[in-house]
Write a protein that binds this DNA or RNA. Structure first.
Lengths: 340, 340
DNA sequence: GACTGGCACTCGCTACAGTCGAGTGCCAGG
DNA sequence: CCTGGCACTCGACTGTAGCGAGTGCCAGTC
């Protein structure tokens, strides 16, 4: 694989120009805009090699070259440095995020901020319950047979759920139940709760047994199975930038994918600690998103990761800039969470 | 304004055909597909009148006719009967909505259901806080200087908010505060709370005064000013049906409008009790949505209205069917809420 | 052996002319 | 008041031609 330095420089130049102009780039334009020190003919030879290796391609026989997904991949891995943020961007981030009063508030501000800075679709995962601990469980009587269960996690997440009791339940019993579940569960990681919940049912005094059984079912459902993850989304209008050239004419598959929580979670949900992930075109597993790229990373207070965030845009995107922004936003959000 | 019965029939036929085929409809096609009992030439004369009155127009000199916003308006007001739902649709609604465990769950299921049935963009407003009463206020200590305030409304809405106290606050004081705010506020309509909250600050024992002052600020902010309203949205991918013909080529303005909560609230937020509202094209006040129509209605348990829901689509939409679906869904949701 | 200038070739894009046909407006007659 | 007939309009489509950006290849140079 004879990719010498100049060929790499040519590839880099092609990616940069194509991202900037949205038009196939030819050999003449390339030597004019970059100091390559060689003639167009030489560049053409290099291009032929790059094409053979699958890094670029020609839309039509007599057009300029366009990077392939593989070309972007090489560019991201070896040819680009992460762009440092401008002071203006840093300031924008801070200004946007200070004054958040709430986890909800933080998440919504973050997702709007990301969409605005990157001019793409932004997705933020709420802190994952699986990675949170129970801070407090509250039981609020709604009627004689109904309780509202409210769980507050250390990450700031609050989940609530209505519990339909099998029989009317006296106020004192509610107090007892509240005390019992908190004694047992407060402070534990949510992923560790299922056996503890089971134990609760077994240990509880007989007169509370039926109530606790119902409660435990709902607990398990709410805390572990259902809604486990939540997402915020913003900037879908950015999909229409660049006319219909990106996304080969139809936003449909993209919009469909964006409505599927499961898909988004797979894309931006955190995985390995703190690595920034870049999925280019068909590298991601969803057919609907073959024309899109995703840049995502984990965030969390300090070194721990509690959730993921990222952006989705055309494969033709400014990777260095986007990566830098995503990372910076994630770091700021982490700091914000650490303060609480 | 000589709009005799036949001219109205012609208009109705034009609307129906255009909605079905998405193509300008000519006089010959019209007499073929509908039993008008007259010749194309006669229809042409009627069309000329309808055009003069502004109900239809020609995209180009020698094309068929297309309804104008005004034409749709007349059609909706006088020429269409609300289509009764098919049994299949009724069953779909019931199947979709039973098993909802939660207000969140109800709202999400509803919005997806609406999007699916109408094949358009659906919007559901959470029950408005302004139209809810306080059921219970809970104060949960998070740390020595932090409380989590949780408000549960009779409509099932739950709002929470972190409260930063000016000084460490002992557990007993939290209990007292909880009792005081509940005594004063539980059962009152949220719109009536501001003076009561003020009174609370004045009446409270001196040692609780600073804590209560902070709390009251947050209460007012959370319950009345901020987040007042919430929305759920689904079916944006449906905007891409009908290619780029609807929405004159660009989804951009629509997508932008859909990201603005304020806009959506104005569109589907409840107003007069239980009337179904239909806003056609430029009848709505937002420039971004001149190419769209909105069908919305209020919903709520029994006869009261607590929120709005509706759909947004191209002006070229099946109004009778959409109106029927929106109404039916709203009624089912109302019943569901009444049960809780 | 690597680079370069030159040249023939490809092919998409635009402009233009010509044809077709759907649809109209109008008019004279029933 | 309705109808059939007719001339007219104009968008959609087709085919042709010229232009220009860009390529691949080759022979010549350092």
């Amino acid at each position: 694989m004879g990719l010498d330095d100049r060929k790499l420089a040519v590839l880099r130049a092609i990616v940069e120009d194509y991202v900037a102009t949205q038009e196939p780039v030819g050999s003449r334009a390339l030597v004019e805009r970059h100091q390559l020190g060689v003639s167009p003919a030489t560049v053409r030879n290099d291009m032929a090699v790059l094409e053979e290796e699958g890094y670029i391609r020609q839309p039509h026989t007599s057009a300029g070259r366009v990077p392939t997904d593989r070309g972007y991949r090489l560019f991201v891995d070896r040819l680009s440095r992460v762009k440092p943020l401008s002071p203006a961007e840093r300031r924008a981030i801070e200004r946007f995020l200070v004054g958040a009063v709430d986890l909800d508030d933080v998440v919504h501000r973050t997702v709007r901020l990301l969409a605005q800075l990157t001019r793409q679709v932004a997705v933020v995962q709420y802190p994952s319950l699986a990675r949170s601990s129970v801070r407090h469980l509250e039981l609020v009587p709604i009627s004689t047979t109904r309780l509202m269960l409210v769980m507050i996690a250390d990450t700031g997440r609050v989940e609530q759920r209505l519990v339909e009791m099998p029989a009317p339940i006296p106020a004192d019993d509610v107090t007892d139940l509240r005390r019992l579940v908190n004694e047992k569960l407060a402070g534990t990681r949510l992923s560790d709760t299922p056996p503890l919940v089971q134990a609760l049912v077994d240990e509880v005094p007989t007169e509370l047994r039926p109530a606790m059984t119902t409660l435990s079912t709902v607990l398990l459902e709410t805390l572990v199975e259902r809604h486990e993850e939540r997402l915020a989304l913003a900037g879908t209008a950015n999909l229409t930038r660049g006319g219909l050239l990106d996304f080969q004419g139809s936003l449909r598959p993209i919009l469909e994918a964006l409505e599927e929580e499961v898909v988004l979670l797979k894309l931006i949900g955190e995985t390995e600690p703190s690595t920034t992930r870049v999925l280019i075109g068909d590298e991601n597993e969803f057919d609907n998103l073959r024309a899109a790229s995703v840049v995502s990373t984990g965030y969390g207070p300090g070194a721990t990761i509690v959730g993921g965030l990222g952006v989705l845009g055309p494969t033709r995107m400014d990777y260095p800039g986007t990566i830098a922004t995503v990372r910076a936003v994630a770091r700021y959000v982490g700091e914000l969470l650490a303060q609480n």
